[in-house]
Design a protein around this nucleic acid. Structure first.
Lengths: 189, 189
DNA sequence: GTAATGATTTGATAAATGTCACAAAATTTA
DNA sequence: TAAATTTTGTGACATTTATCAAATCATTAC
């Protein structure tokens, strides 16, 4: 993957970023290839980096007793972090690669320092967090208002790729129901 | 309520705001007294303002068939808006006063323009949205992992005031269970 | 290819919760 | 204060979903 393709990918996330701001961001980024199962962020720990997925996918989950409960999934051309990590605190979630992936790795502190003086980067960050908040609101909506069936349908309509990459067990915990229930929902179609 | 008290309240939300940034924000704000039932923001409409509660409380909800489903509650010393409203889009929720309240009313567009050039205000906004996102994550956590009983206990432990100001019906829809279930949970203590 | 492992499906049962109907209590209005 | 209205509580029953156990299917390792 060459530098131009990388830039294109990143600009797809926030097209308003100026060339010079993009340059200063990219100066703090590293190209990275990691294999399936790698944990980019581990629950309970602080981490210095956030990531951009050039190719591949991740799941975010947290441990509840002996079960993993999935919070979200991330795919190509998405920025990956947790709010806690971004704020320099210990993460409440673990982020793990679902397949061998190509990443861009950013040093959080360096980017935050850029945002102290570069107002465009500050706006970029605001925008990213707004996107994240909208995602959370939509998800909350689903959990609060929709039945299991409706949530499942919503998911496969809006993100059909998920079925290819994510196990049923993970999808079930993501939707907040048991594996068996999802299996039955699926069987009735 | 005098100007000094107002400033104190607002600074309690983001103490890092400089005196001059605070001044420029306050220049776009209006003191406002509204009575119970007033809708600050209405589902499906665009709105020019966001609010700060100097005294009083609000609920945010959205209509599902003929039912109101509560999304959150707001109290003294909290900033009140919806992400959509803040972004200039039509709101997906309605915000209504639970009691006669005293508000500060800010013109969203003016504040956003300040944020274009005043990096401290830009950071202030980022911080506010991060707080909102953390709230959403915590709530999502509750809906996805906790039983009704655990959610109810969590709520009254973390926000006991809610019981005084909010009806059981609203609390039930907020927790994602029926009125009757909440009533029974409460009865068993 | 076969065994071993892991993932998904299916069945039976129990627990939790929703729904409907109505009673009791609290609050508001006249 | 009394009546009307709204809010909350309770019982009976239906529905949904979780849980546990076992069977099937798929994948990996040898």
């Amino acid at each position: 993957m060459n530098e131009l393709e990388v830039k294109d990918s990143i600009l797809s996330v926030f097209p308003k970023l100026s060339e010079s701001s993009l340059q200063s961001i990219l100066q703090h980024a590293t190209y990275l290839e990691c294999s399936k199962g790698t944990k980019l962020i581990t629950e309970g720990k602080r981490h210095r980096y956030f990531y951009f997925i050039l190719k591949g996918s991740v799941k975010s989950y947290h441990q509840k007793k002996s079960k993993e409960i999935c919070l979200w999934f991330g795919f190509k051309n998405e920025l990956i972090s947790t709010i806690n990590t971004f704020e320099g605190e210990a993460s409440t979630e673990t982020i793990e690669l679902l397949e061998d992936s190509i990443l861009y790795c950013f040093e959080t502190q360096a980017i935050r320092e850029l945002a102290q003086t570069d107002i465009f980067i500050s706006h970029w960050i605001t925008e990213l967090i707004i996107q994240h908040a909208k995602f959370l609101e939509e998800r909350l909506n689903g959990l609060q208002f929709l039945t299991s069936l409706e949530r499942y349908n919503f998911l496969i309509r809006n993100a059909p790729d998920i079925l290819q990459k994510v196990s049923l067990t993970d999808i079930a915990s993501f939707l907040g129901v048991s594996r068996e229930t999802i299996s039955r929902i699926r069987g009735q179609k």
